[in-house]
């Protein structure tokens, strides 16, 4: 109980630190949101002082000194009201995040879970059948695929499957004519549009899970209790899964917790390449436009979910491995 309380206290402290850094980091960037908007406009034609004045009036830039801004920011964090976005004015931040989040949660979330389960199982198999083709194929294939940069795989898939062969749509989350809603037609259409980004993330992330699991599993397999279990004549599957894998999965589980927490951050490059309206794309736009309200809300969301995921994994660890409960 004391242990859980101590963890909770640490959690609160980390949260406050993260929230504060969230506030100050964007403001350390040179220039303010009006400068960013002006820089964008200047690309399209001459801008004058009048333009700057109009933009400042439109954005309603933060007033008061940094301390006042910080206090009102803390109020926003508590009430979860982040105001209006600068980039997408007059859209509110909550509206924007609520629009983007489902796409990312389903795309990145689902793929992360699939990659974790599939990769871990393949890792177990590879370690168990060490030295055979069942080991070599997933291990080498996985590290080969994950060695490609994310965006490069994405661009290749997009170019060949999207533009040359035209088997898959080249951008968007659903067809232009499709009406978003909970019906099978829309879900099918959305899945079709999510296929290429999903494959990209899967292909590039699978290798990590396989290798992680395989390597810990191999060292576990050399332990005495595994030999003992084998000597006792237990079924091979029982030894592999109940004895070796259960102990070997701990490091992978930690990474899984982190990965799950990071899901809400979206997959920036993949979403960019495929024009997918998820959180990663939104975050990118928020950063290049110095959109403080949007950035704050999104970084907060990411930090909190990573912290919560970590916290949960910490608790889960205690359940899986009694030694860590002290």
């Amino acid at each position: 109980m004391l242990c859980a309380l101590r963890k909770l206290g640490l959690f609160a402290l980390t949260l406050w630190a993260a929230v504060t850094i969230n506030f100050f980091l964007p403001r350390l960037m040179p220039g303010d949101p009006a400068d960013a908007a002006l820089a964008r406009l200047a690309q399209n034609g001459p801008v004058t002082d009048a333009t700057r004045a109009a933009i400042e009036a439109q954005l309603g830039l933060p007033t008061g000194n940094l301390w006042d801004q910080y206090v009102s920011y803390l109020q926003q964090v508590v009430t979860l009201d982040f105001g209006v976005s600068f980039t997408y004015y007059p859209q509110s931040v909550s509206e924007l995040v609520a629009d983007a989040l489902p796409y990312t949660l389903i795309l990145v979330g689902l793929v992360t879970v699939i990659a974790f389960i599939g990769g871990t199982l393949l890792g177990v198999l590879a370690a168990w059948k060490r030295g055979t083709w069942l080991d070599a194929l997933p291990t080498i294939g996985g590290s080969f695929a994950s060695a490609f940069p994310y965006f490069w795989t994405a661009l290749l898939l997009l170019f060949f499957l999207g533009y040359v062969l035209r088997w898959f749509p080249s951008s968007g989350a659903y067809s232009v004519t499709s009406d978003p809603g909970l019906n099978w037609q829309f879900i099918g259409d959305a899945a079709y549009h999510a296929a290429l980004p999903a494959v990209t993330i899967l292909v590039t992330s699978l290798g990590g899970w396989i290798l992680g699991m395989r390597n810990t599993m191999i060292s576990t397999l050399g332990d005495d209790y595994v030999t003992f279990a084998e000597a006792n004549g237990l079924r091979k599957r029982t030894v592999a899964l109940r004895y070796a894998a259960r102990n070997a999965i701990l490091p992978n589980l930690t990474s899984f917790g982190l990965a799950l927490g990071g899901v809400v951050g979206g997959s920036l490059l993949v979403e960019q390449v495929f024009g997918y309206p998820g959180v990663g794309y939104l975050l990118f736009n928020a950063v290049i436009n110095q959109d403080y309200p949007l950035m704050q809300a999104m970084f907060l969301m990411i930090t909190v979910s990573v912290l919560v995921a970590n916290f949960l994994v910490d608790i889960l660890y205690g359940v899986l491995d009694p030694r860590t409960r002290r």
Binding site: M29, P30, G31, D32, P33, D35, A36, L38, A39, R40, A42, P46, R52, I288, Q290
Partner: peptide
């Protein structure tokens, strides 16, 4: 600097020579 920082430097005169368009 990033585009916003470039715009700021330009507005403040914080440069020796600055690239821009007219």
């Amino acid at each position: 600097p990033q585009p916003a920082g470039h715009t700021l430097a330009q507005r403040n005169g914080d440069f020796d020579l600055i690239v821009s368009s007219f």
